[in-house]
Write a protein that binds this DNA or RNA. Sequence first.
DNA 1: GTCTATAACCTGATAGAC
DNA 2: GTCTATCAGGTTATAGAC
Lengths: 229, 229
Amino acid sequence: MIEEATKSTSERILDAAEDLFARQGFRGTSLKEITELAEVNIAAVNYHFRSKDALIRAVYERCFVPLNEKRLRALAHAEQAANGAPLTVEAVLRALFEPMVRAWITDRNFILLVGRLQHEPDSELGGFIQRLYQAMIPRFLAALARALPSVPEGELFFWTHYLFGGVVYTLLNSHDMQRFHEGQNLLDTPDLFLDRLIELGASALRALAPTELENADNHTPGHSVHEVL
Amino acid sequence: MIEEATKSTSERILDAAEDLFARQGFRGTSLKEITELAEVNIAAVNYHFRSKDALIRAVYERCFVPLNEKRLRALAHAEQAANGAPLTVEAVLRALFEPMVRAWITDRNFILLVGRLQHEPDSELGGFIQRLYQAMIPRFLAALARALPSVPEGELFFWTHYLFGGVVYTLLNSHDMQRFHEGQNLLDTPDLFLDRLIELGASALRALAPTELENADNHTPGHSVHEVL
DNA sequence: GTCTATAACCTGATAGAC
DNA sequence: GTCTATCAGGTTATAGAC
């Protein structure tokens, strides 16, 4: 996020745009502000990117593509370790949530940009991001369905989406913790937060199938996706 | 949301502003758009409200105050029914969530406006809304602490905030259900959604206190706050 | 590739007639 | 209370010199 002299003009523009879009939104940020923060000429945006809309898409692509790759790689890695056996719910949720939480630690812009997207449901940008997610969701849903075969996929999707939303909201509104309740909170210890989150999420999804036994032999709650990244 | 000829100019402006702010944000909405949708003169905004900022606060006040009143009234009603005994976790969560879900059914602008606030953390508006919530949170936290006395309040707040966030995200991104998974979903049956949500949330909060027994005598999962409104 | 200059337009806010 | 007219400034985008 810090503009270095070595970075190219287009990278400096992307850095500045990411920062300002995250904080102020798309419409709330002018090209003038972006180019001033990036310390480039105002005309450079229209030269390197075609328009403001194209710049927005470039910013999102740079954020989302690597994160979704990490998630899919973490899932593939867990499946490889399971050696053909169905994954535990915990393993699937960890592959889904850990990259996002780790990204949040190093770069809080990402979660802000995710939040911004909730208000662009019909735009061209929304469809663009939708395509990115649509490649990921079937993979994770299939893994969850193998972990909990007796739960209808529709319910699995609905409540995993709910749990996912809680993570986004919690990270997005992390200041609420200091604002409304003094003292330490779980976000100060992301590893502990992840463990508790996965524990809570897994028990919630398991509760959808009261009679489900599920194979618990390769249950590794402390296992981290961190090492594969 | 429908402009009627009988409504006053300031009400027409508030309706139009609420609609456009919800869809486009504050910075993304011009006074010209608002006055055109409201079918009033452009100068009327500065006459009835002092400025655009004051209009935004008026819109939020009109949305938030009644909802928080409903939540507090539902909690007070449940406590009255419990006759001095601690409430169940379910009863507290229902008082917290039901007014929001019911508001979402009739007016989806509200949840969009809530979402917009996540990106105004430092502004004067953020502080304004914070004061509204700050009146509510201690009341609900106290009720939860009575229901689960062995759980530290910090953890109760953190995970209730998480569960709350999941509701906001789910309602805000309700289109995801149709987008990513065909067929019926829980949001088509809000009463069932509420029951499942409260069930899931209560078991999640109870899991924070493994040794907790808790009084389950006035446990009424199907009880609705609807009748008191 | 980078700059200046400028076009064409929209913004919030206000003054003053009715 | 409601209107027109207008202010000073900001907006995206582009044309053309270097």
